[in-house]
């Protein structure tokens, strides 16, 4: 305390100067409109540039949360889009029978996950995500990101899961050219992480370079219509009945961060149906 008092007394002239300077400035800016306006204009310019700089820095800290929010919103919209598409299809089918009320299907749910490990340079690539069985991840769930298909869940732990990447020759994905019903099989040829090969596409399918390749929906893993890539060109093949196309993948596998695992709510039902059908055909075969 004594030191503080000594300090104040020693430098009292500076405190007196500051006091009178502040008083003068207050008088100056409050009573002179010209100085007042310039002061406020300059203060606003300085403040706005400081705030802008501050905002530029702090906005990066919230990007992860914003990204997650956007992903969730995207998932919700995608879910809504799928159900609306189903509804439209039902209306189309039931158009003559206007009394029939179609059921709105809510087949798919999405689980947001962050990629914690990823590879693109190996011949068999896998991705690990930070969500597991506790979060509702199950084997054979499809995984997508904002750009397109990523892979299929392979092994599930409690808090993490391994995904077989689309950049893995073991994964074959049923795809079709958008606005056509003919499908082929997409597989990675171990060459570039930006390209894959669509095999077994019938010869009579009409397409052009740049056409979009989407999932066919002929499995319980991916709903129909998810973007996979665009046609880059034809590839030489020995089979005269089928095309082999080079596909430029829309997903950037080298920059994966947030992905969505697709949960098909009707998967078990479809499996049971398939099993029942398989059992009946066996019985029929036995009788005959």
């Amino acid at each position: 305390m004594r030191n503080l008092l000594d300090f104040v007394i020693k430098h009292s002239s500076w405190f007196v100067f500051l006091f009178f300077a502040i008083l003068s400035c207050r008088l100056l800016f409050n009573s002179n409109p010209y100085q007042h306006s310039i002061y406020f204009t300059s203060a606003n310019v300085v403040c706005s540039s400081v705030y802008e700089l501050f905002n530029n820095v702090t906005s990066y800290f919230h990007l992860r949360d914003i990204n997650e929010d956007l992903q969730q919103r995207n998932a919700m919209l995608e879910n809504e889009m799928v159900s609306l598409r189903n509804e439209i299809n039902n209306y189309k089918m039931l158009l003559p029978d206007t009394n029939a009320v179609p059921e709105v299907y809510q087949h798919f749910d999405f689980v947001i996950a962050h990629v914690i490990s990823n590879s693109v340079s190996q011949p068999y690539n896998y991705i690990t995500i930070n969500r597991g069985s506790d979060d509702g991840i199950r084997p054979e769930m499809g995984v997508v990101d904002q750009n397109g298909v990523v892979g299929i869940v392979n092994v599930v732990g409690r808090h993490s899961a391994r995904i077989v990447s689309l950049l893995n020759p073991n994964l074959r994905l049923s795809c079709k050219v958008k606005n056509s019903d003919f499908f082929g099989s997409l597989v990675w040829d171990c060459e570039s992480p930006q390209y894959a090969v669509l095999e077994e596409l019938p010869r009579h399918v009409e397409f052009e370079n740049g056409d979009t390749i989407i999932t066919s929906g002929y499995s319980t893993v991916f709903p129909e219509g998810l973007i996979v890539g665009v046609i880059d060109g034809k590839m030489p093949t020995n089979d005269d009945n089928f095309y082999t196309l080079r596909i430029r993948l829309t997903t950037d596998f080298s920059r994966l961060s947030t992905v969505r695992a697709i949960k098909n709510n009707m998967k078990d039902e479809l499996r049971e149906l398939e099993k029942a059908d398989f059992g009946n055909s066996n019985k029929e075969r036995g009788k005959s």
Partner: peptide, 15 residues
């Protein structure tokens, strides 16, 4: 009628 201008300048000069 120049509130504060001369007061501030005089304070600076005094220091």
């Amino acid at each position: 009628d120049t509130q504060g201008m001369n007061a501030l300048a005089c304070t600076v000069l005094a220091v």
